[in-house]
């Protein structure tokens, strides 16, 4: 296993884990079906990109985007996180206040499709369909990004972000606040009747999720150094939902497991298949990627049917000093 391969795998795994932890807070813990989750990752990536890049007149002006501030690390990543959080405010304001939960889901799905179409068509705004290229890797002014040590540094910083996201997610999930979120997920009206303000709870967790999703976008764009509408089409969100459903809704460890099994797993399978020409050239062009999407769909439906609680179900909280259960 060469370094490039290992680093690539680890950074993708880190980004997917962070994204899944954020989506688990929204969907698994709070019951918000955020079908536009990938948009929050994308806005974080775009924000981190334009914060770290020079103005678009540099490099001969072959691409067009707004901003270009050449800010040093870690400002672009923080900016990415903040962009994700800021986007959550107007979106949440429209979607989360009055609408019934299934309408929230479709409104967010539509938002995801439309946001992608708008960015694709707006050439001058964020590079349009071609996207943005030559995003400088963080700290590249000080360390040569082409060295092996830089690659491991990137994995290290990503790992720190994973730990931060996990600590945040764990503290929320295991706290009385997390309990309120779960109560709202279970029965919103009853939660209201015991003094919870569901709109405030949802808005807050939507923003927290947006912040973390934005951070994941910042990490990813610093690594792959390009960003375009084709990498954040709405089915990308469905992969993350598949991860949460497979891993176990409401369980952070489940979210991590799901991230490793589904998005990372499928990424690896793709690469494996592309490396074996006999399989990659099977059938009409696009057959293998298309079948992977079918597999994602089957995975969601299969788990919802046979094991809706996932591989690692949400844990039942037993408090210290609890009487021993009769059936044990």
């Amino acid at each position: 296993m060469n370094t490039y391969y290992a680093v690539n795998l680890l950074v993708y795994a880190g980004v997917d884990i962070i994204a899944c932890l954020a989506l688990n807070l929204q969907f698994g813990v709070s019951g918000i079906v955020n079908f536009s989750f990938i948009v929050f990752q994308a806005v974080g990536a775009y924000a981190a990109a334009v914060l770290s890049m020079p103005p678009d007149t540099a490099n001969g002006g072959f691409q067009h985007y707004i901003g270009g501030y050449e800010l040093p690390f870690p400002i672009p990543w923080l900016g990415g996180a903040i962009a994700g959080g800021l986007l959550a405010i107007p979106v949440g304001f429209v979607v989360l206040r009055k609408l019934r939960s299934d309408y929230q889901a479709i409104a967010l799905l539509v938002l995801s499709v439309i946001a992608n179409a708008v960015i694709t068509n707006a050439d001058k705004f964020l590079g349009g369909a071609a996207g943005i290229a030559l995003v400088p890797p963080p700290l590249s002014d000080r360390i040569d990004p082409n060295t092996e040590s830089y690659q491991y540094l990137y994995v290290g910083i990503t790992a720190v972000c994973v730990v931060i996201a996990l600590v945040v997610a764990n503290r929320i999930v295991n706290s009385p606040y997390g309990r309120s979120l779960r109560a709202m997920r279970e029965r919103e009206l009853a939660a209201t009747a015991i003094g919870k303000n569901p709109v405030q709870l949802k808005m807050t967790i939507f923003i927290v999720g947006g912040l973390i999703a934005g951070l994941s976008g910042g990490i990813l764009v610093g690594f792959i150094q390009v960003w375009a509408p084709s990498v954040w089409l709405y089915p990308e969100t469905i992969i993350l939902f598949a991860a949460i459903i497979v891993g176990g809704r409401g369980n952070n460890i489940g979210a991590i497991l799901g991230a490793l099994l589904v998005p990372v797993g499928f990424e690896e399978i793709t690469r494996f298949l592309n490396n074996s020409p006999s399989i990659a050239n099977l059938g009409p062009p696009g057959l293998i990627p298309a079948l992977q999407w079918v597999a994602i769909g089957l995975l969601i439906i299969g788990f919802l049917w046979f094991r809706p609680e996932g591989v690692r179900p949400e844990s039942r909280r037993v408090f210290e000093g609890a009487p021993v259960r009769e059936d044990r």
Partner: peptide, 13 residues
């Protein structure tokens, strides 16, 4: 909500 997710998965398939 579960049904919405199922139907979206179907759509993808």
């Amino acid at each position: 909500l579960g049904m919405v997710i199922v139907s979206l998965a179907v759509s993808l398939m």
